[in-house]
């Protein structure tokens, strides 16, 4: 999604009202229920959320100068900055060491990279198709990408062919390097 993303893609910046901020927080919690206990710490009451509208209807939300999440359609997607702070709250899958290189250059994740011995998929029932997941790597502590499942995790395990996860945001992409001022 952020293959190309520069300052020119920004259309407007505006501060978010505190009422909208409350809504955003509750929406985040409803999407990722485990965020509830830390949400007040993540987005403190006094902090100022800014809304940055960009090309292709992408909207970034920054909290105190850092992009924490964004949305293109209805769904809020956390950025890696947020994920690194509280990774437990998000559904996670793991890729093997051989895949890291490709993930970091922005490739979609293929099923075999998710089913090999170094990788890890959740046990059944697993995650639904189209859900937002974070991608971790073998022997690594922190997440390296955010993606969207193109098929359910059960299907990934059974079919084991083709694209499994659509890349949304990864370490080193323009959004990661993006600096708001």
């Amino acid at each position: 999604m952020f293959r190309k993303f520069t300052k020119e893609d920004i259309h407007s910046r505006s501060k978010v009202k505190s009422s909208v901020q409350r809504n955003l927080k509750s929406k985040l919690v409803s999407q990722f229920p485990q965020l509830e206990e830390v949400i007040d710490e993540l987005i403190q009451k006094k902090s100022q959320i800014e809304l940055i509208k960009c090309e292709d209807k992408i909207q970034l939300y920054t909290v105190d100068g850092e992009v924490y999440f964004f949305q293109q359609f209805d769904e809020l997607i956390p950025t890696l900055k947020l994920i690194h702070k509280y990774p437990q709250a998000f559904p996670t899958i793991q890729v093997d060491r051989g895949a890291i290189k490709f993930v970091l250059s922005g490739a979609n994740i293929m099923c075999p990279g998710l089913t090999s011995p170094g990788a890890r998929l959740p046990e059944t029932p697993g995650y639904e198709k189209d859900s937002i997941i974070i991608i971790n790597a073998e022997n690594k502590e922190h997440a390296l990408a955010v993606g969207k499942l193109l098929m359910s995790t059960d299907d990934i395990a059974s079919i084991n062919k083709g694209h499994g996860v659509e890349m949304i945001h990864h370490l080193g992409d323009p959004l990661w390097n993006f600096n708001i001022d």
């Binding site: 830390v38 990774p87 690594k140 502590e141 370490l171 080193g172």
Partner: peptide, 22 residues
């Protein structure tokens, strides 16, 4: 509860991923 992650000052990644940046 929140984790503080150290980011590499050279390549901005968490240090464990430095080896992939060249």
């Amino acid at each position: 509860m929140l984790q503080e992650v150290v980011y590499c000052g050279v390549c901005t990644f968490p240090p464990e991923y430095c080896e992939f940046t060249g």
